[in-house]
Design a binder for these strands. Structure first.
Lengths: 343, 343
DNA sequence: TTGTACGCGTTATCAT
DNA sequence: ATGATAACGCGTACAA
């Protein structure tokens, strides 16, 4: 009832800690301690203070608190959101990852500051810390070329990255074992006797390049003479992939296997093949990446590389806090698995 | 070069405005004005101040700024993220919407505070404002039952909502014209002579209920004697829908048309029908909702209701700021269109 | 267990 | 066009 009244009422003009202290007949620091669950304050006193605060519709001013305590308790999450551009291939996966990461952050009582990768300028990200808006940064995706991330790694900005893990990472990364994923695809094609392989993606993205490198390795292991060609995609949307594949096929170029950088791209490829009168997998074998939920129910069900991302979010958050606490967390490659379905 | 040095170097222990003022041989307020692009400060002075700030790796402490200025320049965006739960039906759409909204916010120089709908407790959201963490709230989705939103509407918390628009909205809403979408589906089934309609969704969600109500209306317009049954889904994932449909079909229950609450649900329904030996659209006609990118390329291509969401994000942001500035923005229903494909 | 005194880094007000 | 001064609301030493 009391709550309902307050909820329905107007927000008073800035009730402060002083007001609560006065009403509770204690001093301001005691109120402060009560709100921090300090063991120093007698439970009874605490109760009374909190009750009065509720009645007054009071909440601790976080800006004052952050200013004083010199901690923001917020983490910036930087990712490419589907804005004006159509939503791309990794989108469902990235959305899931955002959810996991946020969850991990909320559990630790951190605010999540959502940011777009405005520029590759190191300064823009340093600014997040300098202006005391966040205590650390989580990058979801490296974008094309991670040179700026390597630069950022040389500063003392605490940050972790979801993306391709380098052999000697200049910054803490969590990502799928893309190379191994590629190897699995390569071996599969090899065992199917495929010779003319098309890689569908964009090798300026580290993750994609690693997948492609793995593909070459997996094919080469058996001393195969298979050829790999690349079709570089400007973005990773269904439409772009469909269009690029359609034009390639119209030019009469053929292949007997496709390794796609994502499931969405793989679906687009199969759609383009069908439009050109080519059958999957009889004429062209196709492997995707991610094992997105719809992959299993696509027609035909998609053969793909599954990455074990259950703990990716948690890992990223844990490592970031290790970093903030002065630790030196290591990068992690998540295991990868070939899911053979119909393509 | 100077930038590179700074970027590579350590963050000095809290450079403050005082330091910059001293180095630039001006007073603190002048530095403050310089950073606010105040016309009061001579361009030349401004240049010098900013240059020195760069060199020193200085950025205005936002917490101090917010405390003093009593504005946070941040907006909370509250949405259900795909966390532990599998990613649901509306997910791609919601992700897109999040992107649009964030974009609109960033353009206005607002920080985006990402929040989960922790509870339906009005107080939790009031707290965001009381604790000065945000100036307003954007809710992406109403959840099951919007009573708490109606309560919140009685407070002076500035907020807007994406979701179902009521006839006499108790709060500012932007959403698809769900009722009309349902009518279009109903008329379509009517013209196809379908009689046993299944609605696949969850009517405790306002948007879904409006779609279902529209369906009934569209069917009834021609004096049809069609029957509508409901299959209530616990969540809107592909798997859940597939499972629920599978069990219903196993029980021998039949229908000759399905109106699904989303495209993902529609795809699951078609998959379940196929598994039961039923053909779409010969045996069962199916209509989805959203016209998600993959809908056109599903096999068979999905007939669906498209909502014009291009400006949804912009609209939400605009209306929220009208609210913050003391205005009374009206709710908006976005037009809706039947896209006839193969189902 | 609680209170006193001070400063966190900024911006607003007023004066010059 | 710029400077002096006083808050903004809180948390932390330190004292009691």
């Amino acid at each position: 009832m009391a709550r309902k009244d307050r909820a329905a009422g107007a927000l008073r003009a800035s009730v402060t800690m002083d007001d609560i202290a006065r009403l509770a007949k204690v001093s301001k620091p005691t109120v402060s301690r009560a709100f921090q669950n300090s063991p120093l304050v007698k439970p009874q006193t605490r109760q009374r203070i909190l009750e009065i605060a509720r009645q007054q519709g009071y909440a601790v001013n976080q800006n004052a608190s952050k200013l004083r305590a010199k901690r923001t308790n917020s983490i910036a999450v930087v990712m490419h959101l589907p804005a004006q551009a159509p939503v791309g291939a990794g989108a469902p996966f990235m959305f899931q990852l955002l959810g996991d990461v946020s969850q991990g952050l909320w559990i630790r009582g951190q605010d999540v500051l959502l940011c777009a990768p405005v520029s590759d300028d190191v300064y823009a990200y340093q600014d997040l810390l300098l202006s005391k808006r966040a205590d650390g940064i989580i990058f979801l995706g490296q974008g094309a070329g991670d040179g700026w991330l390597r630069d950022l790694g040389r500063t003392d900005v605490p940050f972790v990255v979801w993306g391709g893990v380098r052999d000697a990472p200049a910054y803490c990364t969590v990502g799928s074992d893309n190379q191994r994923g590629g190897v699995l695809a390569g071996r599969r094609f090899e065992s199917l006797g495929r010779r003319d392989i098309l890689f569908l993606g964009n090798t300026s993205h580290l993750e994609m390049r690693q997948r492609r490198d793995g593909l070459a390795q997996g094919l080469g292991e058996a001393g195969s003479d298979a050829r790999i060609e690349d079709l570089e995609l400007a973005d990773f949307t269904f439409e772009t992939a469909l269009d690029a594949m359609g034009r390639r096929l119209a030019r009469g170029e053929r292949m007997d296997a496709i390794f796609a950088g994502s499931d969405t791209i793989a679906m687009a490829a199969i759609t383009a093949l069908r439009a050109a009168g080519l059958r999957t997998p009889q004429d062209v074998s196709v492997i995707g990446y991610n094992d997105m939920p719809l992959a299993a129910h696509f027609e035909p069900p998609l053969t793909t590389i599954r990455q074990d991302t259950r703990h990716a979010g948690t890992l990223l958050v844990e490592k970031l806090f290790q970093l903030i606490d002065g630790g030196r967390p290591v990068s992690t490659k998540l295991p990868t698995e070939l899911i053979v379905r119909a393509t």
